Amino acid sequence: MENNVKKQFDQAAPSYDDKHGKLIPCYEDFYGAAVTWAEVNNNSPYILDLGAGTGRLTGMLLDKYPGAHVTLIDLSEDMLQKARERFAGNSNLEYIAADYLNYEYDRSYCMVVSSLSIHHLTHEDKQALFRKIRSLLKPGGVFVNADQAAGSSPAFVAEFKRLWLEAVTATDLKPEDIEASQKRRLLDIDATLTDQLQWLRDAGFSEVDSVYRNREFTVFVAKA
């Protein structure tokens, strides 16, 4: 699975930023909610971005915290190269091409964030990752995950997919771009909102909630 995900996103990297927003019908609200809830009492926080890709979420967080120190980790070196180009000249950023679940981090963080990445993990690995994130956070730290949550029944799952396809088909995306996104989505292993909230509680977070949802697109917040 890991190699398949890496291959798909390596292939998508050259034009990923041009199409990403159009493939998420609620893009502005979805990412906006994540940034709003990425709140810590520190003007220069240490932030870990899991599955950082081309750095879209990191860029939004740097607008909010210009003095932040950010570690961007992703399986795809090609995606990270786009992030390096985006943030050229910012010496407060570190780039790691690795599997973020098994990587051995050497520091703790004020904030851990992720966007549209963790749903690629098996449910067991999601739970292991949540425990790892909890151990990496400083007291008072926060984990913000803008990701996908499965519908509570097969009927809702099917309706979410139908509505997504209807929305992206109405954009100016080319049919081959939509087809490529559908192919990537075959690798998704979405868990329900209820299960993910419980797994965060089980990982030891003191407060957890879903602060935004538009069909499968969901923002989770968990406080250490």
Rank of each mutant, 00 (worst) to 15 (best):
N43R: 13
H123Y: 07
P14V: 08
K64T: 13
Q198F: 10
F220E: 01
E39C: 14
V5N: 03
F87L: 10
S108T: 15
S206D: 15
E159S: 12
I47E: 04
N214P: 01
S76M: 03
V70L: 04
T58Y: 02
T194H: 11
T36H: 11
A68S: 10
S115P: 02
I47N: 02
L23Q: 03
F160Y: 09
E39G: 12
Q196Y: 06
N42E: 14
M111R: 03
T122H: 06
L50G: 03
P154L: 09
G32T: 08
R215D: 13
Y212S: 09
D29Y: 12
R213V: 10
Q148M: 14
K126Q: 12
E207F: 10
Q196D: 11
R56A: 11
A52F: 01
R131Y: 02
I133W: 00
F130L: 01
V40R: 04
A191T: 09
V144F: 01
P66V: 10
G59I: 07
N102Y: 06
D106A: 13
E77A: 10
E77M: 09
L116S: 08
A68N: 06
P139L: 10
S115A: 15
P175A: 10
K161V: 12
S15G: 13
I73L: 06
A97R: 07
V208G: 00
N3Y: 13
Y46L: 09
I189H: 15
R215Q: 11
D49G: 06
E166M: 11
A98Y: 05
L193G: 00
V40G: 02
F143Q: 00
A12H: 05
F205K: 01
P139S: 12
G32L: 02
S15K: 14
K174I: 14
F217W: 10
T194Q: 12
A33Q: 11
Q8L: 12
E85W: 10
A224W: 04
P25M: 05
K223L: 02
S44A: 14
S135I: 01
Y109G: 00
R213I: 12
E28M: 08
D209K: 09
I96F: 07
A158R: 09
G51L: 02
L121K: 02
P175W: 09
Q8Y: 12
L197A: 00
S15E: 11
V40A: 05
N90T: 08
Q182R: 15
N43D: 15
